[in-house]
Design a protein around this nucleic acid. Structure first.
Lengths: 334, 334
DNA sequence: CTGTTAGCGCATTCAA
DNA sequence: TTGAATGCGCTAACAG
């Protein structure tokens, strides 16, 4: 390992001058500068970021922590990265995945300290450990649940999105719309918020939202969506529309409908949530609630930058607007 | 910020004893231990990982560096994570994304030093900077191209996979199979290897592989796959089969075929590569080459562990086997 | 413009 | 079983 001292010796200057050259902090004379750079090249020197961090107290690195980087989160990460990099920082991704409960405790509390800021998705996370997080690190929460007031938070307009999608299908003739993957509880969470939107759409149309049409899924995978949809079909419950809690779940439903000989959208209309890239291309195109990744990313990164700049005002809770993208899986789409 | 020294003072012991308690390196007397733990709790102490790293020379962290974490890479990351964590290390994900060329230079060479090991996807990466990487860090390359001999490398059996998929469609009656997203060059790369497999399948069946059926795509997105496929259809070239270079591209082709009124598999059979989760569920199910993420992950992590354990033997170049998963997009699938 | 001094927080080494 | 000294590699603050 070649250290700064080695470069300094080779260039015949002090360690501090090497540091100054590399960090461009103070003006350095041109002849000195080029001698230093030559030595850097010759020795193949690379700064030790750990030492820099320990001394300087910053890593120029932001972490985006999410359960995994499938689908929604990878698309969001793609939007976040350039915004973070525009400020001269790096973005790294960390997964909470499997053992979320322990993770946030073991991983984050100590681990998050190594970042200048953290974007933390609260999906599938126990919030209790969060309450105890007493770090002064800049941190912005992302995701569809209630979080402690003191955190900056960006979430989607879940009710509104679900209402748009459901109302659209009602308008196009559906009267028996399954809320697939939604839940009946009252806690403020994605699956209940979206169920509320589904109910609102019914109420606004003067229809009754039958609780029998709220069908949970075991997890938010296409497989689970498919299984749940197959059960609904097998049960004989009359269905002429499906609002799926996510596009991934909607894809599972589409698979189940196809295998059951039900035509989309002729027999059953289908709408999802997230507007994944995939949804444009899966025939006949899945109508979906676009969650405006770019807007979410901008809001979150802006809040984070504000914190990293030393802002200490009250936390902000942003609700990002959504819009409906109509495609072939509902009538009126292409 | 509460330091180890603060804990030591509170517990009435030395800093070294606190360190010993936390790291469980040497036996510590029970009464001492509990006093230390009490002080840790009381003060909410969290170890400073940066300082530990600088001193101990290890981060217990492995990085997986890839262009982005859509689709293939997120599924791979899901397999890699538990293997890395099983050895008591963390996995973090870094994107090379947009400006790959600079990135690997600016980002990696200095940045990769902060990890105990690196899994580096060479997809969309300039290899020239890699040649100059003279780090002694454990590093394993992943991906479908020629890499310098001295690196451990895991790649897929691209030719073999493409041959399986193409042969399957030939066997089921296709005679005019587009190699969508493949390229005509000779450099050892994913798109040419897969084209060679497509050719081999033709030769083995006694058929001619017409170069006119090798159709490039502008990038490996569904959008590009769709555009390219639409052009093929518009050109009037007779087509009764499509081998797409990835499932993502295959999805674009499926979209184009559907919009053109061509039935899959009746008019045109379709096969992809990667066997993404999605491909099981997109009606009628996309026949695909399964790349055995688990096997790739295991091979890569094993090589990395070997390096991290101090192994210095010759580098290994693993070719992970693949298999064909037949679904409804080809005849003979469900 | 360049160099000197000091120390970030922790763990290795060795002594008690 | 516990503790004192030392320094990982770098940069902030200041002196020359």
């Amino acid at each position: 390992m070649v250290r700064m001292a080695d470069v300094a010796r080779a260039a015949g200057v002090s360690v501090m001058t090497v540091s100054n050259v590399l960090n461009e902090r103070v003006p350095v004379g041109e002849p000195t500068r080029s001698r230093v750079m030559a030595a850097v090249e010759a020795l193949g020197y690379e700064v030790n970021l750990t030492a820099r961090h320990l001394r300087a107290g910053r890593t120029d690195t932001v972490a985006f922590v999410a359960p995994s980087f499938h689908d929604y989160f990878s698309e969001l990460a793609d939007e976040i990265a350039p915004l973070v990099e525009a400020e001269g920082r790096h973005l790294v991704l960390e997964r909470t995945s499997a053992n979320a409960e322990q993770e946030i405790e073991a991983l984050s509390v100590a681990r998050l300290q190594i970042y200048d800021g953290v974007l933390l998705s609260v999906a599938g996370l126990d919030l209790e450990p969060l309450e105890r997080v007493r770090t002064s690190k800049p941190i912005v929460l992302l995701g569809e649940r209630e979080v402690p007031e003191r955190f900056d938070h960006v979430r989607l307009a879940n009710e509104s999105g679900a209402r748009l999608a459901t109302a659209h299908m009602i308008e196009r003739g559906s009267r028996r719309i399954v809320a697939l993957g939604c839940s009946s509880g009252s806690a403020h969470a994605m699956t209940t918020d979206r169920r509320v939107g589904w109910e609102d759409a019914h109420r606004e149309a003067g229809l009754e939202a039958d609780p029998a049409y709220v069908v949970p899924v075991s997890d938010y995978t296409s497989h689970a969506g498919r299984e749940a949809m197959l059960e609904v079909i097998a049960s004989g419950l009359p269905v002429d529309g499906v609002f799926a809690v996510t596009d991934v779940v909607a894809l599972g439903a589409l698979s189940a409908l196809a295998d059951s000989g039900l035509r989309v959208p002729d027999d059953v209309q289908l709408a999802g949530f997230d507007n994944l890239d995939m949804s444009r291309f899966v025939p006949p195109g899945i109508t979906s609630v676009d969650v405006n990744h770019k807007g979410v990313a901008q809001a979150a990164v802006e809040l984070l930058h504000r914190q990293m700049s030393g802002w200490t005002g009250p936390a902000e809770h942003v609700v990002a607007p959504v819009r409906l993208v109509v495609r072939g899986s509902t009538r009126g789409g292409a």
